[in-house]
Structures are given as C-alpha cells and as structure tokens.
Computed example of a mutant assay.
Amino acid sequence: MRFLETDEHDDPILSVVNLVDLFLVVIAVLMIVIVSNPLNPFSDKSVVVIENPGQADMRMLVKDGEELREYESSGEIGEGEGIKAGVAYRLADGRMVYVPEAPAGGASGGAASADGAAQ
C-alpha cells in the first residue's frame, strides 16, 4: 500500500534537525569572534585599543586584567611643567642622537646615540 509508506522528504522533524545544526554553527562562529576580540572579558591580558587615532574624536580603551578604562580626546593641546632636557638629531643613516644639556653649574657630558655608543 502506497499510503502507508513514509516519505523522508515530507518529514517535518528533519527540517527542525537541520535548523538546530544551523544554529549550532552560528553559535560556534560567535564564540570564535568573542575569543578573538582583544577586549575579551575572559582574558587576563593588558590591551590598549585606539579608535580614530589623530582625529578629534579619538578614544582609547585600556584593559588591564578585568579593569576597563576609557579615555576620550578633549581636542585641547596639553600643557605641562618641565625644562628642556636636551636636543635630539636624526643622522643621514636614520639613527637618532640625543645630546643632553649640561646642568646649570656642571661640565658638559658626552652625547649618547641610538645604538648606545658615547661620542
């Protein structure tokens, strides 16, 4: 009898099983995205994320262990107190040379280059 035979293509349970498989794949992809995110809440690493560097709306997110801090640019130029410590020069070969300034009453010291040699 043809009416008593079951046709596998018309079984509604098979389509539900296919949907469950699809959702499992979507969940696996989302888990991979969460783990690969640098601001992953399950990571103990220290991370700094800079959004829009050099722009007026620049933001910095600093994650140190479980603590997450956010810094936003105010657009103002910073100002501080200090004195000139010396002069830096770039040589023709790309190395940097730093020449410290002598203290107010002392003798002048040698210059230290980027490769650590004294001149």
Rank of each mutant, 00 (worst) to 15 (best):
M1W: 11
M1Q: 11
F3G: 11
L4N: 10
L4G: 08
E8P: 04
E8I: 06
E8T: 00
H9S: 09
D10M: 08
D11H: 00
D11S: 05
D11E: 11
D11T: 05
P12K: 00
P12A: 00
L14P: 00
V16W: 00
N18D: 15
D21C: 01
D21I: 00
D21S: 05
D21F: 02
L24F: 10
L24C: 12
V26Y: 13
V26N: 11
V26I: 13
V26G: 08
A28H: 05
V29A: 13
I32P: 05
V33F: 14
V33E: 12
I34P: 03
I34V: 13
I34N: 07
N37F: 11
P38R: 04
D44C: 01
D44L: 06
K45P: 01
K45Y: 09
S46K: 15
V49G: 00
I50P: 00
N52C: 06
P53T: 02
P53C: 00
G54M: 05
G54L: 02
G54D: 01
Q55T: 12
Q55Y: 10
A56M: 03
D57A: 07
D57L: 04
M58N: 09
R59L: 12
M60N: 06
M60D: 01
L61I: 15
L61K: 08
K63Y: 02
D64S: 15
G65Q: 08
E66K: 12
E70H: 10
E70V: 14
Y71F: 10
Y71I: 05
S73Y: 01
S73W: 06
G75R: 03
G75W: 01
G75T: 06
E79M: 11
G80M: 08
E81L: 14
G82D: 03
G82C: 04
K84G: 09
K84D: 08
V87S: 14
Y89H: 11
R90E: 14
R90Q: 14
R90P: 07
D93I: 01
G94K: 05
G94P: 03
R95K: 12
V97R: 07
Y98C: 01
P100L: 02
E101Q: 09
A104G: 02
A104R: 10
A104P: 02
G106E: 07
A107R: 11
S108Y: 05
S108V: 03
G109Y: 11
G110Y: 13
G110H: 13
G110W: 13
A111H: 09
A112Y: 15
S113H: 14
A114Q: 15
A114H: 13
A114N: 13
D115Y: 07
D115V: 07
D115G: 07
D115L: 09
G116I: 01
G116K: 11
A117T: 14
A117S: 14
A118S: 14
Q119F: 10
